[in-house]
C-alpha cells in the first residue's frame, strides 16, 4: 500500500513543471546561464530517468534514510521532526474541540428535534460545512488582524514570549478555523445517529423500566449513537491533516503543512516525498486505530 502511494506521488511530483535546480537559481535576472542549471541538475542526479530516481529514493528509505532536502540540504527527517509538534498540537486540539462541541451540539439538537434551537443549529451546520477552510481562515485574519486585533494571526509565539497563555492565544484562530467544518460535520452526523437510536425499540425498553430519562439518554442512547461517530473520527484525521496544510499557510503556523507548501513551491522532491510518506502513514494508522476502537465499544464486533 505504502509502496503504491509513494510511487504515484513520485510520478506526480515529477510532472510538475520546473525542478529544484531551477527553483534554486530562480528565474531571476538572467545572470544564471542555462549551462549552470544543467550542471546543477547533473550534480543532483535530476537527469536520471524517473524510475531510477524512484528506486534510488526507495533504496535509501529501506536503510531508514529519507534523504536530504534538495534545497536546504538538511536531512528530511530532521525537518519533519522539527515541524511535527506544532502540527500535532493544532490537529489534536482541533480534533478534540470539534468532537466535543460537534457531538454535544448534535445530541442536543437530536433530543430537541424540531425545536427552534434545532433549526438554528441545523442551518449553522449547513453554513459551516459549505465554507471552504481557507476562506474561513482569511475571514478570521481580516477581522482579528485588521478590524479588532484581539488575537494574533500568525506564528506560534509572539516575539520573545514563550508562555503557555501566549501559545493558546496564537492557537485560537487557526484551531477555530480548522474546527468549524469539523464541528459542523460531527454535529450533523451525531444528530442523525442519535435520532436513529432514539427511535429504536431498546430505548422504549429502557424507558419502560422506570429509569431516569437522563440515564436513558446517556447510558443507552449515547453509547449506541457514538459507534458510527468513530468512523467519522477515523476519516477526519487525514482530512484534518490536509486542512492543516492550508490553515498553516494562512496563519503562518510553523508545522508540517507549511513545510509541505515550501516543498511544493521549491520543487524540493525529497522533502515532498518524505512528507507524503509521513502523511500516508498517518492515514493508514488512523484507519487501523478506527478498527481497534470499534472493537472496544461494540461487543458485537469483539466476539465475532
Amino acid at each position: 500500500m505504502l509502496l503504491v502511494i509513494t510511487l504515484i506521488v513520485f510520478l506526480l511530483a515529477n510532472l510538475m513543471p520546473g525542478d529544484a535546480a531551477m527553483a534554486m537559481f530562480g528565474s531571476g535576472d538572467g545572470s544564471i546561464t542555462v549551462e549552470a542549471i544543467e550542471q546543477q541538475r547533473e550534480n543532483m542526479g535530476l537527469n536520471d530517468p524517473v524510475l531510477v530516481r524512484y528506486f534510488r529514493w526507495l533504496g535509501q528509505l529501506l536503510k531508514g534514510d529519507l534523504g536530504v532536502s534538495q534545497v536546504t540540504f538538511q536531512p528530511v527527517w530532521e525537518m519533519i521532526q522539527l515541524r511535527i509538534g506544532p502540527t500535532l498540537l493544532l490537529m489534536g486540539t482541533s480534533l478534540i474541540l470539534s468532537i466535543i462541541i460537534g457531538v454535544a451540539l448534535g445530541i442536543f439538537s437530536a433530543v430537541k428535534q424540531y425545536s427552534i434551537a434545532d433549526y438554528i443549529l441545523t442551518i449553522l451546520s449547513f453554513i459551516g460545512r459549505s465554507l471552504p477552510i481557507f476562506f474561513i481562515g482569511l475571514i478570521f485574519v481580516y477581522f482579528f488582524a485588521l478590524k479588532i486585533p484581539v488575537f494574533p494571526t500568525s506564528g506560534m509565539h509572539s516575539m520573545g514570549a514563550s508562555g503557555f497563555a501566549d501559545l493558546l492565544k496564537h492557537l485560537f484562530l487557526p484551531c477555530l478555523s480548522l474546527s468549524i467544518l469539523r464541528i459542523a460535520e460531527f454535529m450533523r452526523y451525531s444528530r442523525a445517529s442519535m435520532l436513529e437510536v432514539l427511535n429504536s425499540d431498546y430505548i422504549w425498553t429502557a424507558r419502560s423500566k422506570g429509569i431516569k430519562e437522563r440515564a436513558v439518554l446517556i447510558k443507552h442512547a449515547l453509547h449506541n449513537a457514538l459507534i458510527p461517530i468513530i468512523t467519522l473520527i477515523g476519516i477526519n484525521i487525514p482530512v484534518l491533516f490536509s486542512g492543516a496544510i492550508m490553515i498553516e499557510q494562512v496563519f503562518q503556523w510553523p508545522g508540517l503543512g507549511m513545510l509541505f507548501n515550501t516543498a511544493v513551491t521549491q520543487r524540493d522532491q525529497s522533502l515532498l516525498m518524505g512528507l507524503c510518506l509521513f502523511s500516508a502513514i498517518i492515514v493508514l494508522v488512523s484507519n487501523l486505530l478506527t478498527d481497534i476502537a470499534y472493537a472496544l465499544v461494540d461487543p458485537r464486533i469483539r466476539y465475532e
Binding site: 425499540d201 431498546y202 422504549w204 419502560s208 443507552h220 453509547h223 449506541n224 459507534i227
Partner: peptide
C-alpha cells in the same frame, strides 16, 4: 416487548 432481537440494547 414483542421483538427480543431489537428490544435489548446491544452494547450493554
Amino acid at each position: 416487548f414483542q421483538d427480543p432481537m431489537t428490544a435489548f440494547n446491544q452494547v450493554m
